[in-house]
């Protein structure tokens, strides 16, 4: 096989792994949007805070890794519940812009509070995974990416099952579909809102550990959240499958674009390629590949 073809497949392979990890974070966004119709601009900051908590537990308090991850998960679940209760519930029934502004404000607060509480330095979040690349014939993949992609896939499947098959998942979709009717069916709507935010907390904690171990933990980690928007716009704001597919597309596109264009322009392609794609998607298919279109009976 020629080198150029190898290079291409390498880019694709890396893109798939990265894409799955984007999908995991995007899932947090989708869960919240699906259940509560709120657009969470603080998803990246959730990931950052989770990573900071886990790395602080690891390093400053010397907790073992499993405990640190548990603390991160528990902390983010509590954070999700608390946030819904204190910020979002009072905004219930207000215009959607109010909620958007609230999450943007929240993002700014989190970016400030994180370093304030845990210091500004870049921490690392070492996972017991070897650094040596795995060679598959001419390709090589980094183990941490493989693990990250695996974990992402596992949780995407678990959440997908939850939504499609479990009674609570069906109730959550019912809430998303029509709040008032869901309420009339005896569904405790606020409880499901809180659950959605807590689930966003869970995926953020996992995303924080994975991304934190790859990129290092500091405020910059929140930028991962920026990739969420092209992912969900491409896949559809309210679709779990869409999050996966959108994640894969964004992962592959940014890797391939960076691989071929970066040498000529000196870098940065990774950051704009997904957005160029997003704008294109908005023009062609604004509800995304798997997004719901409103059913209209004629």
């Amino acid at each position: 096989m020629s080198d150029t073809l190898n290079f291409f497949f390498l880019l694709i392979g890396n893109g798939v792994l990265i894409g799955l990890m984007y999908a995991l974070i995007a899932l947090g966004f989708v869960l919240v949007y699906k259940a509560t119709d709120a657009i969470n601009f603080a998803q990246g900051e959730f990931v950052m805070i989770a990573a900071i908590v886990v790395s602080a537990a690891l390093q400053a308090y010397g907790a073992p890794l499993w405990l640190a991850i548990l603390i991160g998960l528990g902390g983010m679940i509590a954070f999700g519940f608390g946030l819904e209760r204190s910020v979002l519930r009072p905004l219930l029934g207000r215009p959607i812009v109010a909620v958007i502004m609230a999450t943007i404000g929240l993002a700014a607060i989190l970016r400030g509070v994180g370093p304030l509480a845990f210091g500004t330095g870049v921490r690392n979040l070492p996972l017991p995974i070897s650094e040596d690349p795995i060679f598959l014939g001419p390709f090589f993949l980094t183990p941490v990416q493989l693990v990250g992609a695996g974990v992402s896939l596992l949780f995407l499947a678990a959440f997908g099952w939850f939504f499609m098959k479990s009674r609570q998942g069906i109730a959550m979709r019912a809430v998303a579909n029509n709040q008032q009717v869901a309420m009339a069916m005896g569904i405790h709507v606020e409880r499901y809102f809180a659950l959605a935010w807590a689930m966003a907390g869970v995926v953020s904690a996992l995303g924080g550990v994975i991304w934190g171990s790859m990129l290092g933990v500091d405020v910059q980690l929140a930028l991962v959240g920026l990739k969420v928007f092209p992912v969900v716009i491409l896949g559809g704001l309210d679709s779990i499958v869409g999050a996966i597919v959108g994640g894969l597309i964004v992962g592959i596109v940014e890797n391939v674009a960076a691989g071929y264009i970066d040498p000529y322009v000196g870098g940065g392609t990774k950051d704009f390629a997904p957005y160029a794609l997003m704008i294109l998607a908005l023009m062609i298919r604004p509800y995304g590949i798997f997004g719901k279109r409103t059913i209209e009976r004629v």
């Binding site: 109730a171 979709r173 019912a174 069916m185 005896g186």
Partner: peptide, 9 residues
């Protein structure tokens, strides 16, 4: 699923 949602209680 509509029916299942109706049986929430």
């Amino acid at each position: 699923e509509n029916l299942i949602a109706g049986a929430h209680t």
